[in-house]
Design a protein around this nucleic acid. Structure first.
Lengths: 158, 158
DNA sequence: CGATATTGACTGCCGATGCAATCATTGCCA
DNA sequence: TGGCAATGATTGCATCGGCAGTCAATATCG
């Protein structure tokens, strides 16, 4: 069995060809754009993604939410604090496992999350103008594949 | 001429299919991994990317560097401060345009950037195990395309 | 030529983030 | 059962990042 060929070497890893660099820049630019879009809702892009994650049942608890968004656990506690103060998120102690605090959206939180969602949809459709359906689904699949790898990756040996 | 079909609507924008969510999570996970890799060099992943950007002539000045990395200009000044104190970066006032301060790497900065680069190459080759050459180049091209769009995008109307 | 706009570097300020430690609760296993 | 590891939530601490404003130098245009 042959060892797979390595893609990167010292001759071809430069910013424009670096997945890490490109992913970071795309993230920075996209988040900055969305922060401005959400400004009049009093939300940041990260806060909105937390609301959405709760909405879709990916973040039933604070720890799960932090894992889902690859966000710091401590910082997540404080983010939930502010979202709770805004009246968008509810905390409810779990009776079965008393370590856990269940998170859920208030009606106001649901409404805000859905309002923002429509604007995010509009933004992305604008940004993806000219992309074919196949290009987009391929791109999403590749991002998912990368996420899965990074999630399960042991600390890199290098 | 027909208006292109929109990809996203309220039935298919959820975290696992959202480019924004996936890009963010990949960035968070990748940067966290690289932060640990660079820890013994006393560098963070963001600092390293600044060094590389200077190395490749993409960040000849503080402002250009901030644009290249989609990083805050003020924060960049302070990052250069610390990299200068570490003896990795040099500042040199430009004589032609006296607003500008030219950035360059010291020999120590070059060496550190290249050492880290090799480790980054190793990490990415590990993370991309199983990807075909074509899949990787396609992925990179799509990320570049997205970056270009986001860079030139006016504030989203939505 | 002169006023205004633009650009680059820098700074103060505030909020957010990551890390480490703590405490409570639960799971696991000898 | 009893002790120990694991998990969840929280907090303190240091740092970082984004925003807005300032100052200096340059470009633009009437």
């Amino acid at each position: 069995m042959q060892r797979p060929v390595s893609f990167y070497d010292t001759t071809n890893l430069y910013p424009d060809s670096s997945i890490g660099y490109l992913v970071r820049v795309c993230n920075q630019l996209g988040m900055a754009q969305l922060d401005r879009v959400f400004a009049d809702e009093g939300l940041t892009a990260v806060q909105w993604s937390a609301l959405i994650s709760i909405h879709f049942g990916r973040g039933p608890t604070c720890a799960a939410l932090a894992r889902d968004l690859a966000h710091d656990k401590g910082a997540m506690t404080r983010m939930i604090d502010t979202l709770e103060q805004k009246g968008l998120v509810r905390r409810l102690r779990d009776d079965d496992d008393r370590r856990v605090i269940q998170l859920s959206l208030t009606p106001a939180g649901e409404a805000a999350a859905m309002r923002c969602r429509e604007r995010v949809i509009a933004c992305w459709n604008e940004w993806l103008t000219g992309w074919s359906h196949d290009e987009i689904t391929t791109f999403i699949a590749q991002l998912q594949r990368l996420r899965t790898t990074l999630e399960s990756a042991a600390p890199c040996a290098a």
